[in-house]
Write a protein that binds this DNA or RNA. Structure first.
Lengths: 345, 345
DNA sequence: CTGAAAGCGCTTACAG
DNA sequence: CTGAAAGCGCTTACAG
């Protein structure tokens, strides 16, 4: 490994001079000739400064730990893209971890808890993550920012207006004449789920309708869980005509369960999923969904982190723009007098 | 930040003693009482060794860079799970990067090219990654291992038997009576694509049939690209009865295109996708696919990396076990005399 | 205009 | 049984 000292020797100058050349230090001055000579030698030797040494000196690693509930769920693709863009902009590199691996004794946990190992941590909270871990992290010196989470006092966050998002979904179904609208998916304990339900409830309330407790079906996010939750709903034999699914990932499973049970979407049941991703356009029927600016959440989370890190005055915030947008595809249709409510179960 | 020195002062001993306690150093001996005292103080102060300092001392960072073509493509989920498992086992943490971000000037590239920034790099090769980057990396001291890539001389790799995999797919279609079998997806220049085609060709050859050049449709991997490639095939108006799709991600798009064109799968066309992932079971029709041990590829890539790093004697290898396995779902059916070849275009 | 020295936090031979 | 010193590769005041 070629070091500063090697370069200095080859150039016949001191290490401080070489360091000065590399960092354009105002303290170190030299003639243009020696500067060029040093630069040439650096170039030809392929010298790259040792990062650990710089980290030690500056107490910064330029790495950002990012924890999401499930690395492979495409629902987080947009969020991650935003994080990566922000990280690149601010000179960070991303240590990506799965919340399910953040267990006691794991290298990952050790790393993000340690000193001088990462500059900070961005977390997309979820039921898989223990509050214990979060509060431990909050005590560390390295800043923690919560992504896609809002209205928490304990830690800084960048979130979405979830109520507005699901309200948009409900408005769409209402405009198609649906009167009995259900909500499926999401964990009961997760605050985001509650806010999403509130959005639906509020919109239905504005229309003089209400969201019946029996039309709320909690469940986990994975497609297979969506399948199972939908099976429970179907088994009840008492279906709403419109269904808002907590998450587009869940919706894939919901659609499969409906198809397997012979419930036709959108003829028998209209469905709109909260949150969108490109693959939703390729399921058949293509999923009507609410698009929210997840990229922005990721990007701004890095921004917020950076401000906290520099000690700037700053506050948590909700990304309001662009507003939740309805992506009309093929899982909803106007309810008509001819719609025959199909009973299953 | 609490350092070794702080602990030493509080305990009234030297830093070397504290270091010795932490590392169970055989050089440093002490009474059980002082050892316990130091341990207590470490515990109560929440001391964690500074990682940058250790990195500098040992010239190892315990971070492994992992580059895949597309972070959000669920096709890589199994591979990543294997990598994460291997990383955890060997005490590494994963710096995950997208090949599309590995462009000149990016922090990510700088990081994996630099000295002492990562202990090594695992790469899943693809057309998006320039050979220039790869060969630059190969010159670095930190080892590079290619994942899911085989038969390359330049760099160590852990791969799959791709020929055997697609041959298995072809055998399935042959057993259902299909005689004209096509291949769709994959980049022409990517060596893996060629091996996959060879597998089909060989199996058809054994059955006295052949793979016609006009039944090979190259294309990119993303679902939308699969959609477009399938549209081209459909527009030709001359369809095979069986189709092997290079990749299950691509297959999602292929199915959507078929559905949109009124081509029924499996009634009009049988389809089997190479490589499997859980979500393939939730598309309707559920995709029949070839399961390959991608988790093992990821896991063994870390193992191979570790051996190289320790200077052990080692060779690239193909994961042969478990063998490619057919996951029968609903996109294939027996061809019969009643099958009416539908012409489109 | 340039170099020697101290120090970031740690570990490891070596003295005592 | 325990401590002082050197050194990992770098940067930054401070001397000359």
């Amino acid at each position: 490994m070629v070091t500063l000292k090697d370069i200095a020797e080859r150039a016949g100058v001191s290490v401080s001079l070489v360091s000065g050349v590399i960092n354009d230090s105002p303290y170190v001055r030299m003639t243009e000739a020696t500067k060029q000579k040093v630069l040439d030698i650096i170039e030809e030797s392929g010298y790259v400064p040792n990062h650990s040494a710089r980290s030690l000196k500056f107490s910064r690693t330029d790495v950002l730990a990012v924890i999401i509930p499930n690395i492979s769920d495409p629902i987080f693709a947009g969020l991650l893209a935003g994080v990566y863009a922000g990280a690149e902009k601010h000179g960070y590199v991303v240590l990506l971890g799965d919340a399910r691996e953040l267990v006691s004794g794991s290298k990952l946990l050790e790393r993000i808890m340690g000193h001088g190992q990462v500059d900070g941590t961005l977390i997309r909270h979820s039921a898989t993550l223990s509050n214990d871990v979060i509060s431990q992290l909050a005590k560390r010196r390295a800043p923690v920012v919560l992504m896609d989470v809002s209205e928490t006092e304990d830690l800084p966050w960048v979130g979405l207006d979830e109520r507005k998002g699901t309200a948009r979904a409900a408005r769409h179904l209402l405009s198609l004449g649906h009167q009995r609208i259900g909500f499926l998916g999401g964990e009961r304990e997760y605050p985001g789920t509650q806010r999403r339900i509130e959005g639906v409830r509020r919109e239905l309330g504005n229309a003089g309708l209400s969201l019946d407790e029996k039309d709320i079906w909690f469940g986990h996010q994975e497609p297979l869980e969506g399948y199972a939750t939908m099976q429970r709903l179907l088994a009840s034999g008492d279906l709403p005509t419109g269904l808002i699914v907590n998450n587009v990932t869940t919706a894939t499973g919901v659609l499969a369960a409906a198809a397997d049970a012979g419930v036709r979407v959108p003829d028998d049941l209209s469905l709109v999923a909260y949150l969108d991703y490109p693959a939703a356009a390729l399921v058949r029927p293509a999923i009507t969904a609410i698009d929210q600016p997840l990229f922005e959440v990721g990007y701004h989370s890095v921004e917020l982190f950076e401000r906290i890190r520099r000690g700037d005055q700053c506050e948590s915030y909700t990304i309001q723009s662009p507003a939740p947008r309805l992506i009309k595809r093929n899982t909803t249709r106007r309810i008509g007098p001819t719609l025959v409510r199909r009973q299953t179960g």
